[in-house]
């Protein structure tokens, strides 16, 4: 319990295997709370969690807010659309205002890579990166790892394909780092234009052929195909992408029976995944959503409530 100090969570990069395992182990405790008749514990009473989303989101934001409330923390939420940002207020001003209202943790999503890191430099509050541009989305990787571990027992030795727009995906970056750190073998499957310009230093293999890879997999992880990629000329047409990389019923039949199908959401049914496949018995997409709350409870608790620093200053003598 000593390796993660109370500090911001900005990326999977820089975390150790034992940091990740500690969070995953602790998540079981919070998962159990979610199944109680009254799914709430007083652990973070009086703490305030602020969500600052400069980019739209459904599940990340809702799951952070749900997680905070289940721990009895107060929540404050900032959305770019409804704020003074449109009047020209800067990100830094926004952060200072929210900090002045007493936020202990800022959960930040921003379309530019590195924003969470910058905000962390400005503020005394702790920062959780909830997605920064094409950089990282660490809590998504943690909940993915947790979901896979829950279904498979361990990630060690699993063969996982991440399929789709790897180049622009912060989920893929965080997932590759977390999955490989936990001992999985990762293969990236995408057309050449949607792979990152350089994969140097990434412990992964690549393939352009989904059909060849599918029968060998333990996990097929599909990414969302953004429509703007077509306008950028990275794929010729949606139809061609669907023909080559969409997981349809026919392709899903070649995936081993005990394999898992994941997607970070929101899914484009009929594009990267056929509707029937999304509700296949091997699909764990909704588990990912519900595990997201448990993982974020564990992260918030580790940052705010575990108080490792407190242990040293408070005398435990005479306590039982």
């Amino acid at each position: 319990m000593n390796s993660i100090p109370s500090r911001s969570l900005l990326s999977i990069e820089g975390m150790t295997k034992s940091d990740i395992e500690e969070i995953l182990d602790l998540t079981d405790t919070f998962d159990e709370i979610g199944r109680r008749p009254i799914p709430k514990v007083p652990a973070l009473r009086g703490r305030t969690v602020a969500t600052l989303f400069f980019e739209n989101s459904t599940r990340t934001r809702l799951s952070f807010e749900t997680a905070a409330r289940r721990l009895s923390a107060d929540t404050m939420s900032f959305g770019a659309g409804s704020s003074s940002l449109s009047k020209g207020e800067s990100v830094r001003d926004t952060v200072e205002v929210i900090e002045a209202y007493g936020a202990d943790v800022l959960v930040v999503r921003h379309p530019d890579a590195g924003t969470a890191q910058r905000i962390d430099n400005w503020t005394e509050a702790l920062v959780i990166n909830a997605g920064d541009g094409c950089h990282e989305h660490p809590t998504q990787a943690l909940l993915d790892a947790y979901t896979l571990r829950k279904h498979k027992g361990s990630l060690n030795g699993l063969r996982i394909a991440i399929v789709g727009d790897i180049r622009h995906s912060r989920v893929a970056r965080s997932d590759v780092l977390a999955f490989t750190m936990l001992g999985a073998e990762v293969v990236l499957v995408a057309p050449p234009t949607l792979l990152p310009p350089s994969l140097e230093g990434w412990p992964v293999t690549t393939s352009y052929d989904l059909d060849e890879v599918l029968p060998t997999l333990d996990v097929c992880y599909l990414l969302r195909m953004q429509n703007e990629r077509i306008n950028e000329g990275l794929i010729p047409s949606v139809r061609e992408y669907v023909a080559d990389y969409g997981l349809n019923t026919k392709r899903a039949a070649t995936l081993p029976k005990d394999a898992l199908i994941c997607h970070p959401g929101p899914t484009n049914r009929g594009i990267e995944i056929e509707a029937a496949v999304a509700s296949d018995s091997r699909s764990v997409i909704l588990d990912q959503v519900s595990n997201g709350v448990s993982i974020r409870m564990a992260v918030l608790f580790l940052l705010l409530g575990s108080g490792r620093n407190l242990v040293e200053v408070n005398d435990l003598e005479g306590e039982k």
Partner: peptide
């Protein structure tokens, strides 16, 4: 496991092996 209900939360570890069932 009462760890998350304690009034001295933060002064003791929450242990994954202490299961509420």
């Amino acid at each position: 496991d009462v760890a998350l209900h304690r009034d001295d939360i933060g002064m003791r570890p929450v242990m994954p092996e202490a299961v509420t069932d």
